[in-house]
């Protein structure tokens, strides 16, 4: 997009996050470059969501540093808002605004945060919905859509802010099996278009096919960072091997 391909857009340095006594992120360091698709996998409770959520300040950190698009987190509130506008996020449970139509879900943030005029926001909403394949649903309410459609609306809503980075937290885990692919297809297209993406997922096939790098987490630690081929064919870590033997 507007970024130079290959420049570093996210850098986490020694990030530590605790919930009470529990160490959710244990000195995690990594970075993401523009245009890359990084998939994060690991057993449940290993800190994948937490890591992702620190990347747009939904979760504060206890020590370490996170640099996003040349802003340092934790930083002043204004900057946090700016970062969040440039980083889109998609949730496992969609988190659509259920009391608003699909259209309003898409135009709310651009109109209020970017002061986009109504007509322009509307046009962009229509275009985005067409891009995720549900143009005809624009005047419906979230409860009237299937899970897969809702998740595609959620992706379109995030894209409406024209983000430079997209974060996905298990976007297909809450979906019925037959709807998983329609969402993965949208994500695949997005990756092909050059979007920088960090994807927490249990879809090994997708990670292998679309990911440029795979991060493996366990117990709050980032244990492996490898290209998909190496990751799946030549596991280097014991816990990674155990994990792969269970999911593959």
């Amino acid at each position: 997009m507007t970024l130079n391909a290959g420049s570093e857009v996210i850098r986490c340095t020694d990030v530590v996050k605790r919930f009470g006594d529990f160490l959710a992120l244990d000195h995690v360091s990594t970075s993401v470059h523009a245009g890359e698709v990084v998939c994060v996998i690991g057993p449940s409770g290993s800190g994948k969501s937490t890591l992702l959520r620190t990347m747009n300040g939904l979760e504060t950190i206890d020590s370490g540093e996170i640099d996003i698009l040349n802003h340092r987190l934790p930083g002043p509130r204004r900057e946090l808002e700016t970062i969040r506008r440039r980083v889109g996020m998609v949730f496992q449970n969609f988190n659509l605004f259920n009391h608003m139509s699909v259209r309003d879900n898409l135009v709310l943030a651009p109109m209020s945060a970017r002061k986009t005029p109504r007509a322009e926001a509307d046009a962009s909403a229509e275009k985005l919905l067409a891009r995720v394949g549900i143009a005809e649903q624009i005047d419906k309410y979230p409860a009237q859509l299937s899970g897969g459609q809702q998740q595609r609306v959620a992706i379109a809503r995030a894209l409406a802010m024209q983000p430079e980075i997209m974060l996905f937290d298990e976007p297909t885990s809450a979906l019925d099996p037959e709807m998983v692919n329609e969402v993965l297809d949208v994500m695949r297209d997005l990756a092909r278009a050059g979007m920088t993406m960090v994807v927490v997922t249990h879809e090994m096939g997708f990670a292998r096919e679309v990911g440029d790098r795979i991060l493996f987490m366990a117990d709050g630690q980032l244990l492996v960072d490898a290209p998909p081929e190496t990751f799946f064919t030549a596991p280097s870590d014991e816990r990674q091997k155990t994990f792969l033997s269970k999911v593959l």
């Binding site: 939904l58 808002e81 996020m89 949730f91 605004f97 259920n98 709310l108 959620a154």
Partner: peptide, 26 residues
């Protein structure tokens, strides 16, 4: 719902809009 707030925050929605459109009506 926490998720509604998370979504609103992650879009960078201004706080007045969050109150007016997302928190208060429901």
């Amino acid at each position: 719902d926490r998720g509604q707030l998370e979504a609103a925050f992650s879009l960078g929605t201004p706080v007045t809009t969050i109150w007016r459109r997302i928190v208060l009506p429901p």
